[in-house]
């Protein structure tokens, strides 16, 4: 095991003629949580989606746990089994109940038995505070509950890295708290996480590093204390003034 979980070098991506990511460099140490923030359209979600190959890119390299993330389907499947992702819109499987949502991926993709997978899934649902909701279908759950099931589902694959793509943006204010609580306890337990979020409270409390993106570039990359008290760039100061009133 290397000390670096993710290493991004010279990553550039174009959507047609539009340069979406411009020569990105990023290092995420193992056991640390990193927050990606920035104005909308700055490329933070696109960068996150490159980390598990949901987006392709034209130049540069992404190295995950010492292995480069390629574009070959077989390599990507192997990579994604080690990298969990939580989406803004939850994307739970609506035809399966909460327990099966969590138990199916490891059963199919890691080849463990149904009994093992379901025992593990029950434990994970309890961990996110949803032990009593195992037999509920996604449509019967609130937004916050859905997102917590989605986190349990990502954890069930025992990933080395967890990616969060604006996990609280589709939630009402009350639900945001319950999802953030789960994320905070994961971060405090030493999970390697990369989080795209506008929740500056989360960023200032638990993350180890804040990456501020602007126009497809990494504008600032520093510990949260410095980012929130003394940002280097004018753009970051303006952004902070907006999100913190």
């Amino acid at each position: 095991m290397t000390a670096t979980a993710i290493n991004v070098v010279g990553l550039s991506k174009w959507f047609g003629d539009f340069l979406a990511l411009d020569d990105i460099a990023l290092t995420v140490p193992r056991g640390c949580s990193t927050v990606l923030c920035g104005p909308s359209g700055s490329g933070k979600s696109t960068l996150l989606r490159c980390l598990n190959g949901l987006e392709s890119w034209e130049e540069g390299e992404v190295v995950m746990s010492g292995r480069p993330v390629g574009h070959r389907p077989r390599d990507l499947v192997a990579l994604r089994r080690r990298v969990g992702m939580v989406f803004q819109d939850f994307n739970l499987f609506p035809h399966l109940d909460a327990l099966s949502n969590v138990a199916l991926p490891p059963r199919v993709n890691l080849g463990i038995t149904r009994a093992e997978a379901e025992a593990e899934a029950e434990m994970l649902l309890a961990q996110v505070g949803l032990a009593d909701f195992a037999r509920k279908y996604p449509a019967q759950l609130s937004g916050g509950q859905k997102q917590r099931v989605a986190i349990a589902r990502a954890l069930a694959m025992q990933p080395e890295v967890l990616l969060f793509d604006e996990p609280t943006s589709a939630l009402d204010p009350e639900s945001i708290g319950e999802v953030l609580d789960v994320m905070i306890s994961l971060a405090e337990a030493g999970t390697t996480m990369v989080v795209v979020t506008h929740e500056m409270g989360f960023a200032s409390r638990v993350c180890h590093e804040v990456v501020f993106m602007c126009a497809g570039r990494v504008a600032e990359c520093c510990p949260p204390q410095r980012f929130f008290t003394d940002p280097e760039t004018e753009r970051a100061r303006a952004f902070l003034a907006q999100v913190q009133y």
């Binding site: 969990g84 994307n91 035809h95 993709n109």
Partner: peptide, 30 residues
């Protein structure tokens, strides 16, 4: 089916065929 279902399946390490068989086709038939 929304694009999110295929992406969620891919992100969890499903292959094309297991994603179709376990996630997408059962929902499509319903």
């Amino acid at each position: 089916l929304g694009k999110g279902q295929a992406e969620a399946a891919a992100a969890l390490g499903f292959t094309y065929w297991t994603a179709q068989g376990y996630i997408l086709i059962p929902q499509a038939i319903r």
